[in-house]
């Protein structure tokens, strides 16, 4: 899998009077692993959802390998694409939710093959073979016929990761993937993400696990009040933060 180049330029997003994002600029290079940290309400999740166009942005744009997500550019105007086209472009981006959001009425295997078959039009046999490989990779080869509620939280999140990878995405976005897990289950999910970090896929991970961010991230991005306060290599941002806000946050969580 080859990673995509993710460019975020001047993204604004408001919910009513609340300004969640106030001009976010961020570049994530192909194959780079970016960990986004920051206090709750700082706009991390909104940014992630804006990348995937689950939230429409008010201003600015997000592009993947130069292709705008959700819009087509005509001169100086951005025209929102049809839903069909947005759905097609989304298949290049995998999204892993905090609450897994597996489809509870489908088996694990059905969860994983649904998008490759019906969003990408791949043959069922090929999709199932690849899904079984992915399930083996996340250590769940023997649970293909189980339903999500029969699995532990950690197993569910690993299925969700396999489901996101089944699209062969250029970028995978993780929205606090371990926040809904019991402490003893966090490790197995982080292990899978860590393994993924070495494969060349671009990853953006919103996380509360600062230690994990240090371990896997090439870049740590600190966000507060809807803007990127600072970014850089883990040692720089986590050990010698340039901003007082970063320092104050790190003192609280470490």
């Amino acid at each position: 899998m080859t990673g995509g180049l993710l460019e975020i330029r001047g993204v604004h997003k408001s919910f009513g009077l609340l300004e969640a994002l106030r001009g976010v600029d961020l570049t994530v290079r192909p194959g780079e692993v970016a960990a986004v940290i920051g206090p709750s309400g700082s706009g991390k999740s909104t940014l992630l959802r804006a990348i995937n166009h689950l939230e429409k942005v008010d201003r600015g744009f997000v592009s993947l390998d130069g292709e705008l997500i959700g819009y087509a550019r005509h001169g100086n105007t951005l025209r929102e694409l049809t839903e069909r086209e947005i759905l097609r472009r989304r298949t290049r981006i995998g999204f892993v939710f905090q609450n897994f959001n597996l489809f509870p009425h489908l088996t694990v295997l059905e969860n994983v093959v649904e998008a490759p078959i019906y969003a990408q039009g791949r043959p069922r046999a090929e999709a199932e073979a690849e899904a079984r490989e992915l399930l083996a990779r996340v250590g769940l080869a023997d649970r293909a016929d189980a339903r999500p509620r029969q699995l532990s939280g950690g197993q569910q999140q690993r299925v969700a990761i396999a489901r996101a990878l089944a699209l062969r995405p250029a970028v995978v976005l993780f929205d606090e993937p371990t926040s809904a897990l019991d402490p003893e289950l966090v490790g197995e999910v982080l292990g899978v993400i860590k393994e993924l970090a070495g494969t060349g896929t671009t990853l953006v991970v919103v996380t509360h696990e600062v230690g994990f961010a240090r371990e896997i991230a090439d870049t740590v991005v600190f966000m507060d009040e809807g803007v990127v306060v600072e970014q850089g290599p883990p040692d720089a941002v986590l050990d010698n933060p340039a901003s007082d806000r970063t320092r104050a946050f790190l003192e609280k969580v470490l």
Binding site: N52, L54, E83, R84, L87, R88, R89, R90, T91, I93, F95, F97, N99, N101, L102, F103, P104, H105, E114, A115, Y118, A119, Q120, R163, A164, L167
Partner: peptide, 24 residues
């Protein structure tokens, strides 16, 4: 979250309704 997961996977709209939403 089910609507969002289906949308984030790029599953076509009619399929989202028929396969993911209505059965639940």
């Amino acid at each position: 979250g089910q609507h969002e997961a289906a949308a984030s996977l790029g599953i076509p709209r009619h399929r989202q309704v028929r396969r993911i939403i209505l059965p639940q």
